[in-house]
């Protein structure tokens, strides 16, 4: 919803603003202001801005989400090893603390930027925006964003990605889509990870997971994959290549305006707040922090 054309008035809230509705009343001496804006307006604005940056440089951005330990970093490592080397990859890692995941990615010779969120349980668009200052986007074809391991909070924040991939690892149980519908509803692709454990943990039934996904009206394709045995990797890599190609075709038909005026003097309100100060973007020092054209 865009907050400008009235599409934010839904079946759910229109009764509230009609005459006689709860929002129509005004007490004497007071002014009632009808707003109808998303609470995440500022984040969504920055996310849109990030997406413009990705599009200007023909970069596909994929946001990986899952519970902690579902195998996001292992999936990225396997992807780096097996993806066509002509496809240039960068990774933005989100964790509460440590640079461990970024280190794992860098060992494969791939640029990785670690965002240490401190106490924040999710990445938001402002953090990605900061990270993009340390990334020369024209050097990459795909940027993977590894979100903080969490099946709740990251689902509410648009980062400017083009696709969400949600991992459901076999040890977690096949009913996770039913327990975390908001997260799994956001998925453009669902990956059943650690699929090599399916014969051992036989109470996980892939068909059950698929049925729970149907219950939340998900039309996302499902891939069973093991980063360890590499089964399912071909399907995943084909999906990535298909999305790169689709995005390029889309941008040919809908070119992004060049010379997009962009000033970073502005200070986002939320960045002034205490919470945002606790977020650190750790560059891998390969590129000077001020060297970005963003």
């Amino acid at each position: 919803m865009c907050d400008t054309c009235g599409c934010n008035i839904t079946h759910g809230n229109e009764s509230l603003i009609k005459p006689g509705g709860k929002l129509a009343r005004t007490k004497s001496g007071k002014e009632a202001v009808t707003v109808l804006h998303s609470l995440l307006q500022e984040n969504d604005h920055t996310a849109h801005h990030n997406r413009e940056h990705f599009d200007q440089h023909n970069v596909l951005a994929i946001n990986l989400m899952s519970s902690p330990g579902a195998g996001k970093t292992s999936l990225l490592e396997a992807t780096i090893q097996l993806l066509d080397p002509s496809i240039r990859i960068a990774v933005i890692e989100g964790d509460l603390e440590t640079e461990n995941d970024a280190e794992r990615i860098r060992k494969h010779g791939v640029k990785a930027i670690q965002i240490a969120t401190g106490s924040a349980c999710h990445l938001d668009a402002h953090m990605i925006h900061q990270a993009l200052h340390n990334l020369e986007l024209n050097e990459y074809d795909v940027v993977f964003i590894e979100n903080v391991g969490n099946l709740v909070c990251p689902a509410s924040f648009d980062l400017g990605q083009h696709h969400n991939v949600v991992l459901l690892s076999v040890p977690e149980g096949d009913d996770k889509p039913s327990k975390y519908p908001v997260m799994f509803r956001s998925a453009d692709l669902v990956m059943i990870s650690k699929a090599d454990l399916l014969p051992i943990l036989d109470d996980f039934k892939s068909e059950h997971a698929r049925r729970y996904l149907q219950d939340i009206a998900s039309t996302a394709p499902v891939i069973e994959l093991s980063a360890k045995t590499k089964s399912g990797m071909t399907q995943w890599l084909d999906w990535i290549k298909q999305q790169i190609s689709n995005r390029k075709d889309y941008l040919k038909q809908h070119p992004v305006q060049s010379g997009h005026a962009h000033q970073h003097e502005h200070e986002h309100l939320s960045q002034r707040r205490e919470g945002a100060k606790n977020t650190k973007v750790i560059s891998d020092k390969a590129i000077p922090e001020t060297g970005s054209p963003l």
Binding site: N13, S38, L39
Partner: peptide, 12 residues
Amino acid sequence: GGDELMLLSVEL
């Protein structure tokens, strides 16, 4: 409906 997260109104 049901996925909204909106500021509907403010009384000043």
